[in-house]
Amino acid sequence: MVQRMISAEQVLALGFPRAVEALREALGGGLDPESEPARSRVALGGGEVLIMPSGDDRIAGVKLVGIAPGNPARGLPRIHGTYVLFDAPTLAPRAVLDGAALTLLRTPAVSALGVDLVAPPGVRKLVVFGTGPQARGHIEALRAVRPIDSVRVVGRSHERTTRFAGEIAKAEVADADAVADADIVACCTTAREPLFDGRRLKPGAVVVAVGSHEPEAREVDTETVRRCGALVESRAVAVREAGDIIQAGLDETELVTFADLVRGTIPARPRLIKTVGMGWEDLVIAAAVVEALG
């Protein structure tokens, strides 16, 4: 079987609308995130390597992600990665994809699906915490599902935040108090403590939190979790990895999943979308990329 090498540009060319629909179709078709293999983490070199496998009876895949917190100071990306897509029956490699690009496409696409499932159709005001690639990707992805015409950016460095906002249409620099007027708040940071006071959220605001996958780290406070309720990829994974959920004291019975809403099995509409990233998401989008390339 021929093994294809797929570049970052080819991965990102799939675009957020098609990525969102691929995720929706997979969940609607019966994919069960609760049965996924657990992510492995190995401390190596200047950080850690994540190993994220997934598969079904047709295809299988594994992503290797290197996370080096010191890289930005070296002028390098914080995350590098490689994804290998296999034919499941034979386990012959079908394609090797740029893993960092796959993450840049997958994470905002999952968030956008969540927003499309729970946010009112006319919401327009977005506040984004973060100035990195995920913040940029979330702005684009959320604009693919909602008519966002106001973006306020909150960052640690005023210079970097000003530069970032200047590159985004209809964006401006703000501080954490901007959440009081936001329809959607997207947290795309490496923060380990809450970024804002949940009491400041207006009624009906939707919050997206993607920055942490460790029990000890969280981007939103207990007030936000309790006020909004939580939409997660998998109940089991959320109570094992999602610090925002764990530190707020929620258990599995208090969580709603993407699959619940896509399939219409639960009428609830939580307003906190907390994701940690799972292998099935990479597999679905990697397969969509390969199919789109023909």
Rank of each mutant, 00 (worst) to 15 (best):
A176T: 11
G229K: 01
T253C: 15
A144S: 15
E193C: 07
T265H: 08
E167N: 11
E172C: 10
A178H: 03
P270C: 06
I184K: 01
C188M: 12
A171D: 01
R218L: 00
R152E: 07
A182H: 04
T162N: 09
P147V: 07
D175Y: 10
K202S: 04
A248Y: 01
A178S: 10
H158C: 00
G132L: 09
Q134R: 02
I184F: 07
D177I: 13
E159F: 09
V151M: 02
H138K: 04
A230K: 06
R235Y: 05
A268T: 11
A135M: 07
I273P: 02
L201N: 00
V154L: 04
F258C: 07
V262C: 08
V262M: 07
A135L: 05
I246R: 02
R163W: 12
R163H: 12
A205R: 01
H138D: 00
S157N: 13
R156L: 14
R271K: 13
A191K: 03
D181C: 08
A176Y: 06
D197P: 08
F258V: 04
L195G: 00
P194E: 09
V256D: 00
V225Q: 04
I139N: 01
D197W: 06
D221Y: 06
T265P: 06
A171C: 08
S212Q: 15
E193N: 13
D149G: 12
T265C: 11
A169C: 11
G132N: 08
V173N: 03
P194R: 07
R136I: 07
I245C: 00
G249Q: 10
V225H: 02
V237N: 13
E223F: 13
G204R: 00
D197R: 10
I148W: 06
I184V: 15
A144K: 04
S150K: 12
R263S: 12
R160Q: 14
V232Y: 00
V145Q: 05
L142N: 09
K274P: 02
E223P: 11
G243T: 08
A242E: 01
E219N: 07
E193Y: 11
P267H: 12
E172V: 09
P267V: 11
R146A: 04
A144C: 11
R136L: 14
D251G: 14
E223I: 15
R199I: 13
P203S: 14
E254V: 07
T222M: 14
R263F: 13
E219Q: 09
L231V: 09
R263L: 15
A205G: 06
V179A: 05
I139Y: 06
V262E: 04
R263V: 12
A176H: 08
F164H: 04
E167C: 00
S234I: 02
E219F: 01
E219K: 06
E254S: 13
K170C: 09
V225F: 04
R146D: 03
D244W: 04
E140K: 10
V151A: 02
R200G: 14
P147H: 07
E214V: 13
I245D: 05
A217V: 09
D197I: 09
S157F: 10
V206I: 10
A135Q: 02
A165C: 06
D177E: 12
L272I: 00
G211N: 04
R218T: 03
V145K: 06
R226L: 15
V153C: 03
V256Y: 02
A248H: 03
C228W: 02
P267K: 14
L261W: 03
R160P: 09
V237T: 13
